[in-house]
């Protein structure tokens, strides 16, 4: 089936299998591998994207459900080649080790800071509770969030 999705501000079309996830469509049909495929059950947050401005796991959205909607992936955060403030903060704070969880954490952090520009520690922890990182121990990630919030 054919779907039409506004991805990162651009109207895109894709032929998808009716049972496939938005994540699969983004990565395999639309050439956007920034959203990572890990758990495929919403546990890890590596595929976090914004669907109509709402933070979701792309693996838990049916590609067909995104038809006619807007999606922003990690690729859509940078503005004309200039890193998004959250991306800059992750680089500066050294919040990236293997990098696999980074796109999801960047999208989730961008979503948090768009809603709350000066989040508390608890709010940061809650906002990122759905994003797993198995390298960093999270401390540098929290540093990056605080840095981006400044």
């Amino acid at each position: 089936m054919r779907i039409e999705v506004a991805v990162n501000g651009e109207q895109r079309e894709a032929d998808v299998w009716p049972g496939e996830s938005l994540l699969f469509a983004l990565r395999e049909r639309l050439g956007l591998p920034g959203s990572k495929n890990a758990c495929e059950q919403g546990e890890c947050g590596s595929c976090s994207v914004l669907l109509d401005g709402t933070l979701v796991c792309a693996c838990l959205v049916l590609a067909a459900q995104a038809d006619g909607h807007e999606v922003v992936t990690v690729e859509g955060l940078a503005d004309d080649g200039a890193l998004h403030p959250v991306q800059k903060a992750f680089v500066e704070a050294g919040a990236v080790q293997c990098g696999f969880c980074t796109p999801g954490l960047v999208v989730a952090t961008a979503d948090l800071l768009a809603r709350r520009s000066d989040p508390s520690e608890d709010e940061i922890r809650e906002a990122l509770s759905g994003n797993l990182c198995r390298c960093t121990g999270y401390q540098k990630i929290f540093d990056a969030v605080r840095l981006a919030a400044r």
Binding site: G45, S48, T54, L55, V56, C57, L60, A108, S129, G130
Partner: peptide, 8 residues
């Protein structure tokens, strides 16, 4: 779940 799960 998480914010992502609660949003959906």
């Amino acid at each position: 779940g998480s914010p992502q799960i609660r949003n959906r």
